[in-house]
Amino acid sequence: MDHFDEIKDIWKSHKTERLPSIASINDAIKNFHSTNKRNIFFFVFLSVTCIVTMIWVIIDYQSNLWTTRVGESLFILIGLYLFFSKLKLLRRNKQEELLSTNDYLDNLKKKSQKGALSETRAILFILLSLAFFFYVYELLSVSNTRLIFGYCLLFLFLVFMWFVYRPLMVKRQQNKIQILLTKIDNIKNQTDEKG
């Protein structure tokens, strides 16, 4: 008998009786399915409530200034974008797991690199800042002091968010992504090796 056949026998000697029965795996699937549905329902419910409230505020506020309208429209656009992207994420059916190991790793690497750049988040932040700048103009334009003071505060807050908070978050995220990318490259090297 070949030595490796003995190893194979040792491997096959392991008992797997504890594996769940088909009934319990079906229960797990049902449970998974209903949790998923419930999460989507709550998310849609909360988002629709927020958007309806925003629309109600817009109608009720009756602003005559175009700046307020632009601010409101930007808020709604950002809200809709976030709503649909989150919904897409919740409904995502891990299709990448059907790929071959090699393609799966390429896909994981591409997604991680995309996450590190976070261009979308930067654009959203700029749009949100603009929305705030437009939206508060009507409230602050009552007096010059209020206008200057209000915009200075808003500007300082955005500067803090952009130059202090954001780089900190990006650095933390990039460290994690870098570790993951190294691990992926390490496995990719194993596939590239000749034997």
Binding site: E97, T101, L105, L180, K183, I184, I187
Partner: peptide, 18 residues
């Protein structure tokens, strides 16, 4: 092959954990 592929990718996903 299809099922093993899913299982292998699930295993590899563990690299996302430290």
């Amino acid at each position: 092959t299809w099922i093993y592929r899913i299982a292998c990718n699930k295993c590899l996903r563990q690299i996302e954990n430290d």
